[in-house]
Write a protein that binds this DNA or RNA. Sequence first.
DNA 1: TCCTCTTTTTGATCTGTGTCAAGGAACGAT
DNA 2: ATCGTTCCTTGACACAGATCAAAAAGAGGA
Lengths: 247, 247
Amino acid sequence: MQQVVAPAFKTCSDCPIRHRAVCAKCDSQELELLEDIKYYRSFSAGQTVMWAGDHMDFVASVVSGVATLTQTMEDGRTQMVGLLLPSDFVGRPGREEAAYTVTATTDLVMCCFRRKPFEHMINTTPHVAHRLLEMTLDELDAAREWMLVLGRKTAREKIASLLSIIARRDALLGTAPPGKELSFDLALTREAMADYLGLTLETVSRQMSALKRDGVIALDGKRKIRVPDMDRLMTEAGDDSDGGYLI
Amino acid sequence: MQQVVAPAFKTCSDCPIRHRAVCAKCDSQELELLEDIKYYRSFSAGQTVMWAGDHMDFVASVVSGVATLTQTMEDGRTQMVGLLLPSDFVGRPGREEAAYTVTATTDLVMCCFRRKPFEHMINTTPHVAHRLLEMTLDELDAAREWMLVLGRKTAREKIASLLSIIARRDALLGTAPPGKELSFDLALTREAMADYLGLTLETVSRQMSALKRDGVIALDGKRKIRVPDMDRLMTEAGDDSDGGYLI
DNA sequence: TCCTCTTTTTGATCTGTGTCAAGGAACGAT
DNA sequence: ATCGTTCCTTGACACAGATCAAAAAGAGGA
């Protein structure tokens, strides 16, 4: 158990995209390569960015806002498989069709790169390919941590895990003020939280109330969360690690 | 729903490693690079290849046998986060410490590459880095499919999902004879299956019995599985996709 | 072959989370 | 303000899967 750590990754100073390799503003050489293939798209809260199976002629990076990657079964059961926060990357070289449905849960701005030239670039610029590999490996670690949450944690631990992931991530990105007491905006509905954690929205609501009653969190309105003691929250999450792999 | 498909990936003819980039026997140029940094290690069933946190000076590819990647909480709750079948890759460039515990569930042979020269190679050989990215993206897709299983499927569907993953994988690798009727060796104990699916071993046993009683599978001994109708199994798994993302 | 150890199966009971249902709070539109 | 809509909370009850327990089935080894 330890304090929220300093960013371990390279942050770009004037844009919110974490990895310089896919950020057009950071490196002059890459700037030239990327400047003419990128463009911005905005979405409003609740809007679907793309449906699973859609043709997708770009890859993208989240500039601001929150989006979710979800998978849905024929009978409607839904599982979130990715949570896209600012600096996260979506899409993959070599895939024309989106594998997951992407939904904006807040107003969202994405920086898109046309796929063909992007693929050409990663094939010719080892540096960029290497960054992309690093990012993908980080995502894989996050997915595996998430599997432990889904498979073995109780409802209460699941909620605490999700809150501590978002809290830590916000702290890293500087969205939340530093210090022992953390405050952040939970940009997810109860239903989205349920889809993240493999629960029902009623169970999410009950456990949020329980954590509030027990003083682990405080709610300002519905979505604004205050965490008086981050260590306490992480203990509730059943998390002995420092969460280094969770983005 | 569709028949078991032909391999979509490039298979190396004279070695079991799927991706040529990490196979020393397939490409003369890479042969020279890899031949002097690789060595083989064998493990017997039940042996732990490495513990989470161990120093790891190699990356490796499974030649034969089955291994598992597991994560364990302080109180002993265990979740499998990766299933390593022949041709799968383990380890990542840039990480000195193993993030997960690797256990051989059968006799196991791994082809190891010393990490430092391997890292050097992926930094200087774009082709290899590109392959590694592809493999990692496939693993990420598999992890996300798995998240749907863990979060939203019933015990019966979970079992059917696991069986159909292994059946399809065996069919692809040619371990199992082709055709509508599939037969394969389930190289996992009930406990390992439970750790994969976020269940208890008793529930796994009960659902295996139920699937057998209902004629979805037949058991020759404890571990040998026969699947009379693969489509039926996939329906039981609640799986509408062709499973293309599951390795 | 018998014995021991591990793995698997099956039974009885308990419990955490899902399901169904109703009401409350927040927020924008008229 | 008042309505309508969406999101959230709380309650009562049901049930899938966990837990506890014991017996059965294999798999070596002497």
